[in-house]
Amino acid sequence: MKLKKLAAIMLTGAIALTSASSMAKTYKLASNVPADGPPGQLLQEFASRVTDDTDGRVKIKVFANGTLGGQAQYLQQVQSGVIQMGLVNSAMMENIEPTFGVLNLPYIYRSFDEFKMVMDSDLIQKELFSSTADKGFEIVGFLDNGPRSIYSTKPINSIEDLKGLKLRVMSSPTYIEMLELMGTAPTPLDFSEIYSALQQGMIDGGEGGLGALWEIKFGEHAKYAIKSEQTRMVDLIVINDKALAKMKPEDVKTVQRVMKDVTEKSYDVVREQEAASMKLAKEKLGVKVVEIDKAPLVASMAPIYERAMQDPDKGPMLKKVFELQGREF
């Protein structure tokens, strides 16, 4: 009798384990950033914490360094459900939902505090982030990617030295126009192609976070940079809508809670890491970084704002951002 009872208990336990195992789901999260850089480390922390806090019901496996393709490639796969999650920057998102172009406008943020205030607002978190609902995916949060400046293989000591430089840019209408207004020749390339393009002389430089001069060794070829800080891009974490719908409500809340925590952490991590990386780029690679007067660059961006205000997609959102910031165009 005791043996039968023991067997029944064991069978019940096995069924429970099998049931729990069958409920677990592994979500692929594609990114094009290095696993050991700040964004890559933050993504891994997000994945690990979600797995732990959902007791393994939601397992997230991060594929770094463009293993699953460039952002444009894997975003399409997220939309179709082939890949469940992905890291997509706000510039790439503009191609899918034009309203996100407001986040990419040059000098839209006048300070870090203003940037954080806008990004943490309901205007962005609820209104803007919900605008992709009909695109096959939803946004669960973002990582701060820090300010973006300009680096080059050729000497640059002022904005006048930018004229004619062939600079790598993301495939974003706003970013391309921004570099054109600076007098450069924008060249769209995937992030993973930058190093070889610098090495082979296909480009003179690029615009992006200056921490990459050390972290990805762009500074081995690009020895010059100016702190233009024209934009402050964010990396959005997207998830296929059907994949999200299959999660238990409590697990969805866990994903959102963990993502919010990691977002907050990204603010400090990015600032600290960029400072450390810039110090190493200067000391180890001989990179020269020049502080500049940004006023002429800010003034040169007027055409972008004039068009954005008239744009039916961007205009209304831009006006709301200005209201949040307490300023007028």
Score class of each variant (00 low, 15 high):
E180S: 13
I9S: 02
A308Q: 12
G315S: 10
I96D: 04
I150R: 02
S130F: 10
E177P: 03
S228Y: 06
E160M: 04
G164P: 14
I203K: 01
A281D: 08
T187F: 10
V321T: 03
K227H: 12
M117I: 05
L128P: 11
F218V: 00
T153G: 13
V58R: 07
K28C: 00
L324N: 09
M301H: 05
R168T: 01
S22D: 02
S300T: 02
E207W: 07
G81P: 02
K223Q: 06
K126V: 09
D134A: 09
G101D: 09
L181K: 13
M278F: 07
E250W: 09
N65H: 03
M170K: 01
S277I: 01
T67D: 13
L236I: 10
S171M: 13
G208V: 11
Y107N: 07
S228D: 14
T231N: 12
A72T: 02
A295W: 01
Q200C: 01
D113L: 14
L103C: 11
F100Y: 15
P296H: 11
R49K: 14
D113F: 12
A20H: 09
V269E: 08
Y74E: 12
R49H: 08
G40A: 05
L29A: 12
P173K: 03
M278P: 00
T67S: 11
E94I: 09
L179S: 04
T51K: 12
D204N: 13
I9Q: 05
D311I: 06
V298I: 14
M317C: 03
Y74S: 10
R110H: 14
R168W: 00
L43Y: 14
M247H: 05
I237M: 08
Y109C: 08
E272G: 00
Y305C: 15
G211H: 01
P155N: 08
T187E: 08
P186C: 09
D313A: 07
L3V: 09
L179P: 01
I226Q: 12
V102I: 10
Q73T: 09
Q256V: 15
E264Q: 14
E306A: 15
A299H: 01
A243K: 08
S31K: 04
D241K: 14
Y151L: 13
L318K: 13
I176D: 05
S19I: 07
K282T: 08
F46K: 08
E274P: 05
I194F: 03
M317K: 09
K265G: 00
A30N: 11
K227V: 03
E283F: 12
M170P: 00
E160H: 12
F191H: 01
P303T: 06
M309F: 06
T26P: 01
V321W: 07
Q256H: 12
V270G: 03
P188K: 06
Q84N: 02
Y267Q: 09
S48I: 00
E45I: 00
T184N: 11
E306Q: 14
G81T: 04
R232V: 04
D313S: 10
G206V: 09
M85Q: 10
G183N: 06
L11D: 06
T54F: 08
Q310S: 14
Q256Y: 14
E193N: 14
L181W: 14
D36Q: 12
M202I: 13
G136F: 12
L189P: 00
F63H: 11
G69I: 05
T12F: 15
I216D: 07
L68T: 01
Y107Q: 07
N145C: 03
M259T: 13
V140S: 07
